[in-house]
């Protein structure tokens, strides 16, 4: 408060000084503004700065709390189960009289479905990104980008629903299976969700390259494709790697669609054509049956911690890769 008053005092003395040249009315008007303004706004300004500070800190604090809450609850599991039993155990019987909490089948399920999704979405995604960045005429580009963005906006439960009514039937008939709820079905679903991420990040990476690269290569007589292959793709490689990693992160975290189309059998999938269960689906499907702070409840939080760590590592590495890519671009 003391600071304010001193600052106001200066304004008064500065504007009170007469300098001739302009009319007295104007002078008076001027000093009035300065006074009014300073007094009201100094306090307002001070309050608003503090408010923004509080808002900002609150938002950031909440983000921090996520880690705290998950880890605190998840780690209680290890009062009952060892880390080895949890991560390496093949048996998941949370409600048995002698319960088992081994999540290896879920880790395997998540890994398989992610690998499948990446095998499908990476080639298609990078090809699409090249198409949008280098081949498509501007109007097509705008329209396609909007469609791709809408794909990312479709709720995963809607995709899961279509997975049940359309895709699983197609998988069942095409591969002559008794059930269409397989890892492959999940992989296809997830690839649809990872594609927008991969395309947009890879597209940004390619388009961020300076035009000089293209001009230099074309001026040497290289064709457009040779320019893309030999100059642009290598130069944008960090960005493309980041795109793939973010796609992986997206795939690992997807819940509803995979829960709806993968059959959710607790088993280490022997191929892409059998049922499997992911970590995310386990949490979503079983949380309703748990008692607060029971071992099962804690185990689901512990799965959450594993997911949080996996995705965080991927996100942070890809952030560094992207950051480096941006620096190189400059």
């Amino acid at each position: 408060m003391k600071e304010f008053i001193e600052k106001i005092a200066f304004t008064k003395s500065a504007s009170g000084k007469e300098t001739g040249s302009r009319t007295a009315v104007e002078k008076l008007e001027e000093s009035q503004w300065n006074l009014n303004k300073s007094f009201k706004n100094r306090i307002g300004e001070y309050m608003i700065e503090k408010l923004i500070f509080v808002l900002g800190i609150t938002a950031l604090l909440i983000m921090g709390l996520i880690f705290v809450f998950l880890i605190r609850t998840g780690f209680r599991l290890f009062e009952d189960v060892t880390l080895g039993q949890f991560l390496m155990g093949r048996e998941w019987y949370p409600n048995a009289t002698n319960p088992r909490f081994g999540i290896l089948p879920m880790i395997a399920g998540t890994t398989m479905v992610t690998v499948g999704a990446i095998l499908i979405s990476v080639p298609i995604g990078i090809g699409s990104a090249i198409f949008i960045a280098e081949v498509a005429p501007p109007k097509t580009k705008t329209v396609f980008k909007v469609i791709i963005e809408f794909l990312s906006a479709i709720p995963s439960v809607v995709l899961g629903f279509l997975g049940i009514v359309v895709l699983s039937n197609w998988v069942r008939i095409s591969f002559n299976l008794s059930s269409g709820f397989t890892v492959l079905t999940g992989s296809i679903m997830i690839s649809l969700m990872a594609l927008p991420t991969i395309i947009s990040v890879a597209d940004d990476a390619i388009r961020a390259l300076p035009d000089e690269y293209r001009e230099a290569s074309l001026a040497l007589g290289a064709s457009k494709w040779e320019t893309i292959k030999n100059v642009l793709l290598p130069a944008a490689s960090s960005g493309i790697i980041a795109a793939v990693m973010l796609g992986v992160g997206r795939a690992i975290g997807e819940t509803m669609a995979v829960m709806m189309v993968m059959g959710n059998a607790v088993q280490i999938p022997s191929s892409f054509l059998v049922s499997g269960r992911t970590m995310t689906a386990t949490i979503a499907a079983e949380m309703g049956d748990t008692v607060r702070n029971g071992t099962h409840y804690n185990a689901l939080f512990a799965i959450g911690v594993v997911l949080l760590l996996m995705t965080s590592i991927i996100n942070i590495i890809s952030e560094f890769v992207l950051h480096r890519a941006q620096k190189e671009g400059r």
Binding site: K7, F10, T11, A14, S15
Partner: peptide, 11 residues
């Protein structure tokens, strides 16, 4: 330190 930059820039 006591000077109000905002007031100064008006001058």
């Amino acid at each position: 330190e006591d000077l109000d930059v905002v007031a100064l820039r008006r001058k």
